[in-house]
Design a protein around this nucleic acid. Structure first.
Lengths: 236, 236
DNA sequence: CCAAAAGTGTTATCGCTACACCCATGA
DNA sequence: TCATGGGTGTAGCGATAACACTTTTGG
């Protein structure tokens, strides 16, 4: 029995009639724009073309574990929010063999160090408005992820996964504007978010984008979960 | 190379390190209650226990095609609405081997004949309030499908997939009450549905549940799609 | 004639949207 | 002092929720 199908020698596809892979669509937010993590494919076919992060599922892990492992091995990233998008299973999607991929999308806050760190793995952050041609059906995966992100952002506080621990309300608004690709009214946005009751105002200000400075806030996850149980409807 | 992994002789699991299956969570509505289609498993392990409809994906089909094929082969049902729920991939989920399953949920209208027809395949419709213990992780699949159904029913007209072509407004309301598991106000429900503008009132009445009789309606799919493009928000 | 389900309108409340002005500060 | 982004309140409107009575007809 083949223990680790990703370690077959001659071809990455050898040894099984139908292989299962995971691809990760990783979004990051750099305080201004929504970014997508891509890297240069290291195996044939399509070597050196831009690709999502992906590899094969091992026999002793579930697909979520595989996604986290693959992401970590390929980029050094770990411990982020990952959610299953769905399967991509067209028999001819990969000319190299019969590979079914279960796409996962991920969200993370982009700190300065992240921009550097992934470069060591030949990975790169692209603005979602300017994504290059990708291998296989990866552009389709990205498109579906963006659509899903938009839908989910309306009813889940996923936005907070994309910001650093402390953030300002204008930053939060910029993020939601990037996700929804539309301008929002400052006063109404602020009102709505504050009314939800799970933002903690801090005494610090962030002056990186204005002279006056904007107050920093923190997302109180415990409070959020408590409120959700009581029937808060989170709608932006 | 194994052409059809479901036809291996000694064991259904023979021949591949990680097999990919599809399971179908099929919901039907019989004018009163929400039902789930189950059948008696025909292969070891767990032969003769209640199970969802499922089998393996073939190398020359995508998972959606597989779901439709398997459903047809196991129950005679074809041409219904199917949507991917997600993967179930715990390495120990199936004691017989390493099988990853991609669950799909399906919706269909239950006519009298359907209740009979599936019996020929040793399948049976169960009330969703009274589902027996199922093999493997199938109870979990059902629970997740019900949750998904609830969410989706709010923003997609999936309810109409579960009714016969002609239906009355009280029937439609019963269906939504079954999905959401809560009572709805008759007047408001009627108002909301009618305001959407894609219901066609017919001149017939259905007297099966009252002496007065209720007018039959038809769902106008073309009109619905036109309205959606114009930005109708379907919210129940 | 009565039981049982179908059908219908109005009012009060809430939430959303639109919108304009002052504040703080670094350059 | 002024340009730049941060912060705040209110009024009007539309949607939702609550609510009770009349109609039909088979038994």
């Amino acid at each position: 029995m083949i223990k680790d199908i990703t370690k077959a020698k001659k071809s990455i596809y050898e040894g099984a009639p139908l292989l299962v892979a995971v691809d990760c669509i990783v979004f990051g937010f750099d305080k201004e724009r929504l970014k997508l993590l891509l890297f240069k494919r290291k195996v044939a076919p399509f070597m050196d073309e831009w690709s999502l992060i992906g590899s094969f599922v091992k026999v002793d892990e579930n697909v979520s574990e595989a996604a986290h492992r693959i992401l970590h091995e390929s980029t050094g990233i770990s411990g982020i929010f990952l959610s299953e998008l769905g399967s991509f299973s067209n028999p001819s999607r990969d000319p190299g063999g019969r590979v079914l991929s279960i796409a996962h999308y991920a969200l993370m806050r982009l700190e300065e160090q992240d921009l550097q760190a992934v470069a060591n793995f030949q990975a790169q952050w692209f603005d979602v408005e300017a994504i290059p041609d990708l291998v296989l059906d990866h552009n389709e995966m990205v498109a579906q992820s963006l659509a899903r992100l938009k839908v989910n952002a309306h009813s889940h506080p996923i936005g907070f996964e994309l910001l650093s621990e402390k953030f300002t309300i204008p930053q939060l608004q910029l993020l939601y504007e990037a996700i929804f690709q539309q301008k929002l009214d400052r006063r109404n946005f602020r009102k709505k978010i504050k009314a939800m009751g799970f933002l903690e105002k801090l005494d610090e200000k962030d002056k990186s984008s204005s002279k006056k400075g904007a107050y920093l806030y923190r997302f109180n996850k415990e409070e959020y979960e408590k409120l959700m149980k009581e029937g808060l409807n989170f709608v932006i």
